[in-house]
Design a protein around this nucleic acid. Sequence first.
DNA 1: TCGTGTGAACGAATTCACAGCG
DNA 2: CGCTGTGAATTCGTTCACACGA
Lengths: 200, 200
Amino acid sequence: METEGQRTVSSQGLAHASGVTSAQVRKDLSYFGNFGKRGLGYAVARLRKEIRLILGLNRRWRVALVGAGNMGSALFAYKEFRRQGFDIVAVFDVSADRIGQKWRDLTVRHIDELRAETERLGLDIGVIAVPARSAQGVADRLVAAGMRGVLNFAHRRIQVPPSVALRTVNLSIELESLAFAIKALGAKATGASRRTRATA
Amino acid sequence: METEGQRTVSSQGLAHASGVTSAQVRKDLSYFGNFGKRGLGYAVARLRKEIRLILGLNRRWRVALVGAGNMGSALFAYKEFRRQGFDIVAVFDVSADRIGQKWRDLTVRHIDELRAETERLGLDIGVIAVPARSAQGVADRLVAAGMRGVLNFAHRRIQVPPSVALRTVNLSIELESLAFAIKALGAKATGASRRTRATA
DNA sequence: TCGTGTGAACGAATTCACAGCG
DNA sequence: CGCTGTGAATTCGTTCACACGA
Protein backbone atom coordinates (compact mmCIF):
# COMPACT_ATOMS: atom_id res chain seq x y z
CA MET A 1 0.00 0.00 0.00
CA GLU A 2 2.86 2.37 0.83
CA THR A 3 4.50 1.61 -2.53
CA GLU A 4 1.23 2.33 -4.26
CA GLY A 5 1.04 5.74 -2.62
CA GLN A 6 -1.91 4.93 -0.38
CA ARG A 7 -1.88 7.31 2.59
CA THR A 8 -4.38 5.75 4.99
CA VAL A 9 -6.20 2.47 5.40
CA SER A 10 -9.18 1.47 7.51
CA SER A 11 -9.34 -1.61 9.68
CA GLN A 12 -11.74 -2.92 7.08
CA GLY A 13 -9.19 -2.38 4.33
CA LEU A 14 -6.58 -4.25 6.34
CA ALA A 15 -9.10 -6.97 7.12
CA HIS A 16 -9.88 -7.44 3.47
CA ALA A 17 -6.20 -7.56 2.55
CA SER A 18 -5.30 -10.08 5.22
CA GLY A 19 -8.36 -12.27 5.48
CA VAL A 20 -9.49 -11.52 9.03
CA THR A 21 -12.30 -9.37 10.43
CA SER A 22 -12.02 -5.62 10.96
CA ALA A 23 -12.76 -6.00 14.66
CA GLN A 24 -9.83 -8.39 14.91
CA VAL A 25 -7.53 -5.90 13.23
CA ARG A 26 -8.56 -3.13 15.60
CA LYS A 27 -8.26 -5.27 18.75
CA ASP A 28 -4.87 -6.60 17.75
CA LEU A 29 -3.42 -3.23 16.81
CA SER A 30 -4.84 -1.51 19.88
CA TYR A 31 -3.03 -4.09 21.99
CA PHE A 32 0.25 -2.48 20.96
CA GLY A 33 -0.84 1.15 20.86
CA ASN A 34 -3.25 3.72 19.48
CA PHE A 35 -2.13 3.93 15.90
CA GLY A 36 -5.40 4.93 14.24
CA LYS A 37 -7.31 8.16 13.87
CA ARG A 38 -11.06 8.04 14.33
CA GLY A 39 -12.94 8.76 11.16
CA LEU A 40 -9.77 8.35 9.11
CA GLY A 41 -8.16 4.99 9.71
CA TYR A 42 -4.48 4.17 10.02
CA ALA A 43 -1.68 6.14 8.34
CA VAL A 44 -0.02 3.52 6.15
CA ALA A 45 3.60 4.68 6.57
CA ARG A 46 3.26 5.15 10.32
CA LEU A 47 1.54 1.78 10.78
CA ARG A 48 4.18 -0.01 8.77
CA LYS A 49 6.90 1.57 10.88
CA GLU A 50 5.16 0.66 14.12
CA ILE A 51 4.66 -2.95 13.07
CA ARG A 52 8.29 -3.30 12.02
CA LEU A 53 9.25 -1.94 15.41
CA ILE A 54 6.96 -4.38 17.21
CA LEU A 55 8.37 -7.32 15.25
CA GLY A 56 11.95 -6.27 15.87
CA LEU A 57 12.68 -5.44 12.24
CA ASN A 58 14.09 -2.01 13.03
CA ARG A 59 17.59 -3.47 12.96
CA ARG A 60 19.52 -6.02 10.92
CA TRP A 61 19.95 -9.55 12.22
CA ARG A 62 23.10 -11.63 11.66
CA VAL A 63 22.30 -15.18 10.66
CA ALA A 64 24.46 -18.30 10.55
CA LEU A 65 23.50 -21.08 8.19
CA VAL A 66 24.46 -24.61 9.21
CA GLY A 67 24.34 -27.12 6.36
CA ALA A 68 25.65 -26.33 2.89
CA GLY A 69 23.60 -28.93 1.01
CA ASN A 70 20.60 -28.43 -1.23
CA MET A 71 18.41 -26.81 1.38
CA GLY A 72 21.23 -24.64 2.67
CA SER A 73 22.13 -23.30 -0.75
CA ALA A 74 18.49 -22.56 -1.55
CA LEU A 75 18.13 -20.63 1.70
CA PHE A 76 21.38 -18.80 1.01
CA ALA A 77 20.07 -17.76 -2.40
CA TYR A 78 16.70 -16.61 -1.08
CA LYS A 79 16.78 -12.86 -1.51
CA GLU A 80 13.80 -11.99 0.69
CA PHE A 81 15.81 -12.69 3.85
CA ARG A 82 18.20 -9.84 3.17
CA ARG A 83 15.35 -7.61 2.10
CA GLN A 84 13.61 -8.16 5.43
CA GLY A 85 16.73 -7.47 7.45
CA PHE A 86 18.31 -10.90 7.87
CA ASP A 87 21.89 -11.23 6.61
CA ILE A 88 23.41 -14.67 6.26
CA VAL A 89 26.99 -13.86 7.20
CA ALA A 90 28.39 -17.33 7.88
CA VAL A 91 27.90 -20.85 6.51
CA PHE A 92 29.01 -24.04 8.25
CA ASP A 93 29.13 -27.72 7.36
CA VAL A 94 31.09 -30.83 8.30
CA SER A 95 31.69 -32.35 4.89
CA ALA A 96 35.28 -31.96 3.66
CA ASP A 97 34.25 -31.32 0.06
CA ARG A 98 31.99 -28.44 1.06
CA ILE A 99 34.33 -26.74 3.52
CA GLY A 100 36.37 -24.09 1.77
CA GLN A 101 33.80 -23.52 -0.96
CA LYS A 102 33.31 -19.86 -1.83
CA TRP A 103 29.68 -18.83 -1.52
CA ARG A 104 29.47 -15.33 -2.89
CA ASP A 105 31.70 -13.29 -0.58
CA LEU A 106 32.05 -15.87 2.16
CA THR A 107 33.66 -19.24 2.74
CA VAL A 108 32.00 -22.40 4.04
CA ARG A 109 33.64 -23.25 7.37
CA HIS A 110 33.82 -26.32 9.56
CA ILE A 111 31.22 -26.29 12.30
CA ASP A 112 34.00 -26.48 14.88
CA GLU A 113 34.58 -22.82 14.09
CA LEU A 114 31.00 -21.96 14.99
CA ARG A 115 31.72 -20.69 18.46
CA ALA A 116 34.64 -18.49 17.49
CA GLU A 117 32.79 -17.10 14.47
CA THR A 118 29.68 -16.39 16.50
CA GLU A 119 31.66 -14.17 18.80
CA ARG A 120 33.75 -12.63 16.04
CA LEU A 121 30.73 -11.80 13.84
CA GLY A 122 28.14 -11.20 16.54
CA LEU A 123 25.74 -13.79 15.17
CA ASP A 124 22.16 -13.71 16.46
CA ILE A 125 20.27 -16.53 14.76
CA GLY A 126 21.23 -20.01 13.58
CA VAL A 127 19.45 -21.77 10.73
CA ILE A 128 19.59 -25.56 10.71
CA ALA A 129 19.58 -27.12 7.24
CA VAL A 130 21.14 -30.51 7.94
CA PRO A 131 19.81 -34.09 7.89
CA ALA A 132 17.36 -34.96 10.68
CA ARG A 133 19.83 -37.14 12.58
CA SER A 134 22.27 -34.24 13.00
CA ALA A 135 19.72 -31.61 13.91
CA GLN A 136 19.80 -31.88 17.71
CA GLY A 137 23.60 -31.89 17.78
CA VAL A 138 23.72 -28.76 15.65
CA ALA A 139 21.09 -27.11 17.85
CA ASP A 140 23.17 -27.85 20.94
CA ARG A 141 26.23 -26.28 19.34
CA LEU A 142 24.25 -23.23 18.24
CA VAL A 143 23.02 -22.76 21.78
CA ALA A 144 26.49 -23.28 23.23
CA ALA A 145 27.85 -20.73 20.77
CA GLY A 146 25.44 -18.17 22.17
CA MET A 147 22.77 -17.86 19.49
CA ARG A 148 19.56 -16.24 20.68
CA GLY A 149 17.29 -17.89 18.11
CA VAL A 150 17.20 -21.09 16.07
CA LEU A 151 15.26 -21.79 12.89
CA ASN A 152 15.10 -25.51 12.23
CA PHE A 153 14.42 -26.92 8.77
CA ALA A 154 15.34 -30.49 9.67
CA HIS A 155 12.57 -33.06 9.73
CA ARG A 156 12.82 -33.50 13.48
CA ARG A 157 11.55 -31.87 16.65
CA ILE A 158 14.47 -30.43 18.60
CA GLN A 159 14.96 -29.06 22.10
CA VAL A 160 16.61 -25.83 23.15
CA PRO A 161 16.66 -24.12 26.54
CA PRO A 162 13.83 -21.65 27.22
CA SER A 163 16.25 -18.75 26.92
CA VAL A 164 16.59 -19.44 23.20
CA ALA A 165 13.78 -18.84 20.69
CA LEU A 166 12.99 -21.80 18.45
CA ARG A 167 10.93 -22.31 15.32
CA THR A 168 10.72 -25.46 13.28
CA VAL A 169 9.59 -25.51 9.65
CA ASN A 170 8.53 -29.00 8.65
CA LEU A 171 8.05 -29.05 4.91
CA SER A 172 6.48 -32.51 4.87
CA ILE A 173 3.79 -31.34 7.24
CA GLU A 174 2.87 -28.58 4.83
CA LEU A 175 2.14 -31.17 2.15
CA GLU A 176 0.39 -33.47 4.61
CA SER A 177 -1.84 -30.66 5.69
CA LEU A 178 -2.65 -29.97 2.04
CA ALA A 179 -3.57 -33.61 1.56
CA PHE A 180 -5.92 -33.37 4.54
CA ALA A 181 -7.47 -30.16 3.19
CA ILE A 182 -8.01 -31.74 -0.22
CA LYS A 183 -9.75 -34.68 1.44
CA ALA A 184 -11.94 -32.27 3.41
CA LEU A 185 -12.84 -30.32 0.27
CA GLY A 186 -13.77 -33.54 -1.47
CA ALA A 187 -15.97 -34.58 1.43
CA LYS A 188 -17.61 -31.16 1.47
CA ALA A 189 -18.34 -31.34 -2.26
CA THR A 190 -20.12 -34.68 -1.90
CA GLY A 191 -21.92 -33.47 1.21
CA ALA A 192 -20.58 -36.52 2.99
CA SER A 193 -19.25 -34.69 6.01
CA ARG A 194 -19.27 -31.62 8.15
CA ARG A 195 -16.17 -30.46 9.96
CA THR A 196 -14.45 -28.87 7.03
CA ARG A 197 -12.41 -25.79 7.72
CA ALA A 198 -10.89 -23.07 5.61
CA THR A 199 -7.15 -23.21 5.03
CA ALA A 200 -4.82 -20.45 3.94
CA MET B 1 7.60 -45.58 18.77
CA GLU B 2 6.57 -48.23 16.27
CA THR B 3 10.17 -48.54 15.06
CA GLU B 4 11.32 -48.93 18.62
CA GLY B 5 8.90 -51.81 19.14
CA GLN B 6 6.62 -49.98 21.53
CA ARG B 7 3.19 -51.65 21.48
CA THR B 8 0.96 -49.15 23.26
CA VAL B 9 1.13 -45.56 24.40
CA SER B 10 -1.01 -43.56 26.80
CA SER B 11 -2.41 -40.13 26.09
CA GLN B 12 0.14 -38.93 28.58
CA GLY B 13 2.95 -40.52 26.63
CA LEU B 14 1.73 -38.83 23.45
CA ALA B 15 1.34 -35.57 25.32
CA HIS B 16 4.89 -35.72 26.55
CA ALA B 17 6.21 -36.50 23.08
CA SER B 18 4.31 -33.73 21.38
CA GLY B 19 4.25 -30.96 23.94
CA VAL B 20 0.51 -30.73 24.64
CA THR B 21 -1.65 -31.94 27.54
CA SER B 22 -2.99 -35.48 27.81
CA ALA B 23 -6.59 -34.19 27.90
CA GLN B 24 -5.93 -32.44 24.61
CA VAL B 25 -4.64 -35.63 23.05
CA ARG B 26 -7.70 -37.58 24.17
CA LYS B 27 -10.18 -34.94 23.04
CA ASP B 28 -8.55 -34.57 19.67
CA LEU B 29 -8.28 -38.27 18.98
CA SER B 30 -11.79 -39.01 20.21
CA TYR B 31 -13.04 -36.46 17.68
CA PHE B 32 -12.07 -38.89 14.92
CA GLY B 33 -12.95 -42.15 16.63
CA ASN B 34 -12.45 -44.42 19.61
CA PHE B 35 -8.92 -45.60 19.10
CA GLY B 36 -7.89 -46.24 22.68
CA LYS B 37 -8.49 -49.04 25.15
CA ARG B 38 -9.33 -48.06 28.71
CA GLY B 39 -6.64 -49.03 31.14
CA LEU B 40 -4.20 -49.70 28.30
CA GLY B 41 -3.83 -46.68 26.08
CA TYR B 42 -3.54 -46.57 22.30
CA ALA B 43 -2.07 -49.37 20.20
CA VAL B 44 0.84 -47.67 18.47
CA ALA B 45 0.55 -49.41 15.09
CA ARG B 46 -3.22 -49.01 14.94
CA LEU B 47 -3.08 -45.36 15.94
CA ARG B 48 -0.41 -44.60 13.37
CA LYS B 49 -2.52 -46.22 10.67
CA GLU B 50 -5.64 -44.33 11.72
CA ILE B 51 -3.84 -41.00 11.75
CA ARG B 52 -2.36 -41.61 8.31
CA LEU B 53 -5.86 -42.43 7.11
CA ILE B 54 -7.28 -39.24 8.63
CA LEU B 55 -4.55 -37.13 7.03
CA GLY B 56 -5.02 -38.77 3.65
CA LEU B 57 -1.61 -40.45 3.66
CA ASN B 58 -3.02 -43.87 2.79
CA ARG B 59 -2.21 -43.26 -0.86
CA ARG B 60 0.55 -41.60 -2.89
CA TRP B 61 0.10 -38.06 -4.16
CA ARG B 62 1.43 -36.86 -7.49
CA VAL B 63 3.08 -33.49 -7.24
CA ALA B 64 4.09 -30.97 -9.90
CA LEU B 65 6.88 -28.55 -9.13
CA VAL B 66 6.77 -25.18 -10.86
CA GLY B 67 10.05 -23.30 -10.79
CA ALA B 68 13.39 -25.00 -11.39
CA GLY B 69 15.56 -22.43 -9.60
CA ASN B 70 17.31 -22.72 -6.25
CA MET B 71 14.19 -23.30 -4.22
CA GLY B 72 12.77 -25.72 -6.76
CA SER B 73 15.89 -27.84 -6.85
CA ALA B 74 16.10 -27.93 -3.06
CA LEU B 75 12.50 -29.09 -2.84
CA PHE B 76 13.13 -31.66 -5.56
CA ALA B 77 16.07 -33.03 -3.59
CA TYR B 78 14.17 -33.15 -0.30
CA LYS B 79 13.79 -36.86 0.41
CA GLU B 80 11.14 -36.62 3.11
CA PHE B 81 8.45 -35.79 0.57
CA ARG B 82 8.75 -39.16 -1.12
CA ARG B 83 9.00 -40.89 2.21
CA GLN B 84 5.69 -39.35 3.29
CA GLY B 85 3.91 -40.28 0.08
CA PHE B 86 4.44 -37.27 -2.15
CA ASP B 87 6.10 -37.96 -5.50
CA ILE B 88 7.36 -35.05 -7.56
CA VAL B 89 6.67 -36.41 -11.02
CA ALA B 90 6.91 -33.25 -13.13
CA VAL B 91 8.95 -30.03 -13.10
CA PHE B 92 8.06 -26.89 -15.03
CA ASP B 93 9.75 -23.55 -15.71
CA VAL B 94 9.73 -20.82 -18.33
CA SER B 95 13.43 -20.12 -18.65
CA ALA B 96 14.93 -21.51 -21.88
CA ASP B 97 18.17 -22.57 -20.21
CA ARG B 98 16.32 -24.67 -17.65
CA ILE B 99 13.83 -26.32 -19.98
CA GLY B 100 15.17 -29.63 -21.22
CA GLN B 101 17.42 -30.15 -18.18
CA LYS B 102 17.42 -33.71 -16.90
CA TRP B 103 16.50 -33.86 -13.23
CA ARG B 104 17.05 -37.44 -12.16
CA ASP B 105 14.61 -39.44 -14.31
CA LEU B 106 12.54 -36.52 -15.54
CA THR B 107 12.89 -33.53 -17.82
CA VAL B 108 12.12 -29.90 -16.98
CA ARG B 109 9.26 -28.79 -19.25
CA HIS B 110 7.82 -25.47 -20.31
CA ILE B 111 4.87 -24.41 -18.21
CA ASP B 112 2.71 -24.34 -21.34
CA GLU B 113 2.74 -28.12 -21.09
CA LEU B 114 1.29 -28.01 -17.59
CA ARG B 115 -2.29 -28.72 -18.57
CA ALA B 116 -1.50 -31.64 -20.85
CA GLU B 117 0.93 -33.15 -18.34
CA THR B 118 -1.53 -32.77 -15.50
CA GLU B 119 -4.02 -34.90 -17.35
CA ARG B 120 -1.45 -37.35 -18.68
CA LEU B 121 0.17 -37.90 -15.27
CA GLY B 122 -2.85 -37.41 -13.05
CA LEU B 123 -1.22 -34.67 -11.00
CA ASP B 124 -2.88 -33.75 -7.70
CA ILE B 125 -0.83 -30.96 -6.14
CA GLY B 126 1.17 -28.07 -7.55
CA VAL B 127 4.13 -26.54 -5.70
CA ILE B 128 4.98 -22.94 -6.55
CA ALA B 129 8.69 -22.11 -6.30
CA VAL B 130 8.92 -19.07 -8.54
CA PRO B 131 9.60 -15.35 -7.91
CA ALA B 132 6.82 -13.47 -6.10
CA ARG B 133 5.72 -11.54 -9.19
CA SER B 134 4.94 -14.76 -11.10
CA ALA B 135 3.20 -16.57 -8.27
CA GLN B 136 -0.41 -15.60 -8.95
CA GLY B 137 -0.06 -16.37 -12.66
CA VAL B 138 1.33 -19.81 -11.88
CA ALA B 139 -1.43 -20.41 -9.37
CA ASP B 140 -4.06 -19.55 -11.97
CA ARG B 141 -2.50 -22.02 -14.41
CA LEU B 142 -2.33 -24.73 -11.77
CA VAL B 143 -5.99 -24.25 -11.01
CA ALA B 144 -6.91 -24.20 -14.70
CA ALA B 145 -4.92 -27.41 -15.18
CA GLY B 146 -7.11 -29.08 -12.57
CA MET B 147 -4.86 -29.32 -9.51
CA ARG B 148 -6.71 -29.97 -6.28
CA GLY B 149 -4.11 -28.38 -4.00
CA VAL B 150 -1.44 -25.69 -4.20
CA LEU B 151 1.59 -25.22 -1.97
CA ASN B 152 3.01 -21.74 -2.40
CA PHE B 153 6.61 -20.90 -1.48
CA ALA B 154 6.60 -17.52 -3.18
CA HIS B 155 6.80 -14.46 -0.96
CA ARG B 156 3.28 -13.37 -1.85
CA ARG B 157 -0.28 -14.05 -0.79
CA ILE B 158 -2.17 -15.68 -3.66
CA GLN B 159 -5.81 -16.43 -4.40
CA VAL B 160 -7.35 -19.69 -5.57
CA PRO B 161 -11.00 -20.67 -5.81
CA PRO B 162 -12.48 -22.31 -2.70
CA SER B 163 -12.57 -25.66 -4.47
CA VAL B 164 -8.77 -25.78 -4.36
CA ALA B 165 -6.77 -26.23 -1.16
CA LEU B 166 -4.04 -23.67 -0.60
CA ARG B 167 -1.13 -23.33 1.77
CA THR B 168 1.52 -20.66 1.71
CA VAL B 169 4.92 -21.06 3.32
CA ASN B 170 6.52 -17.69 3.85
CA LEU B 171 10.10 -18.25 4.88
CA SER B 172 10.71 -14.60 5.76
CA ILE B 173 7.87 -14.67 8.22
CA GLU B 174 9.52 -17.58 10.01
CA LEU B 175 12.58 -15.44 10.62
CA GLU B 176 10.50 -12.39 11.51
CA SER B 177 8.62 -14.38 14.04
CA LEU B 178 11.92 -15.55 15.52
CA ALA B 179 13.06 -11.95 15.77
CA PHE B 180 9.87 -11.12 17.65
CA ALA B 181 10.32 -14.09 19.98
CA ILE B 182 13.93 -13.10 20.69
CA LYS B 183 12.78 -9.60 21.56
CA ALA B 184 10.12 -11.04 23.87
CA LEU B 185 12.65 -13.30 25.58
CA GLY B 186 14.97 -10.36 26.11
CA ALA B 187 12.16 -8.30 27.62
CA LYS B 188 11.26 -11.20 29.88
CA ALA B 189 14.85 -11.57 31.09
CA THR B 190 15.07 -7.92 32.09
CA GLY B 191 11.62 -8.05 33.63
CA ALA B 192 10.67 -5.11 31.43
CA SER B 193 7.50 -6.63 30.07
CA ARG B 194 4.79 -9.17 30.40
CA ARG B 195 3.08 -10.67 27.36
CA THR B 196 5.74 -13.15 26.46
CA ARG B 197 4.59 -16.42 25.01
CA ALA B 198 6.22 -19.78 24.41
CA THR B 199 7.20 -20.61 20.84
CA ALA B 200 7.86 -23.99 19.34
C1' DT C 1 -6.32 -50.63 38.89
C1' DC C 2 -5.33 -47.93 34.88
C1' DG C 3 -6.41 -44.81 31.46
C1' DT C 4 -9.97 -43.63 27.94
C1' DG C 5 -13.89 -40.88 26.52
C1' DT C 6 -16.64 -37.16 27.59
C1' DG C 7 -19.97 -33.91 29.86
C1' DA C 8 -19.31 -29.84 32.65
C1' DA C 9 -16.54 -25.99 34.07
C1' DC C 10 -13.50 -22.87 32.83
C1' DG C 11 -10.67 -19.66 30.31
C1' DA C 12 -9.23 -17.52 26.06
C1' DA C 13 -10.18 -15.37 21.84
C1' DT C 14 -13.37 -13.30 18.72
C1' DT C 15 -17.22 -10.59 17.60
C1' DC C 16 -20.65 -7.19 18.71
C1' DA C 17 -21.98 -2.75 19.21
C1' DC C 18 -21.44 1.79 20.38
C1' DA C 19 -19.39 6.01 22.84
C1' DG C 20 -16.49 9.36 21.43
C1' DC C 21 -13.10 11.78 18.68
C1' DG C 22 -11.41 13.89 14.44
C1' DC D 1 -20.27 11.82 9.28
C1' DG D 2 -16.64 7.79 9.42
C1' DC D 3 -13.97 4.92 11.85
C1' DT D 4 -11.26 3.85 15.99
C1' DG D 5 -10.85 1.84 20.53
C1' DT D 6 -12.91 -0.93 23.80
C1' DG D 7 -16.14 -2.88 27.35
C1' DA D 8 -19.70 -6.49 27.09
C1' DA D 9 -21.59 -10.50 25.00
C1' DT D 10 -20.63 -14.46 22.80
C1' DT D 11 -18.30 -18.19 20.80
C1' DC D 12 -14.66 -21.30 20.71
C1' DG D 13 -11.18 -24.25 22.62
C1' DT D 14 -8.94 -26.30 26.66
C1' DT D 15 -8.84 -28.40 31.01
C1' DC D 16 -11.08 -30.78 34.78
C1' DA D 17 -12.70 -34.68 36.81
C1' DC D 18 -14.90 -38.88 36.87
C1' DA D 19 -18.00 -42.87 35.20
C1' DC D 20 -16.94 -46.78 33.07
C1' DG D 21 -14.74 -50.50 30.40
C1' DA D 22 -10.68 -53.42 29.81
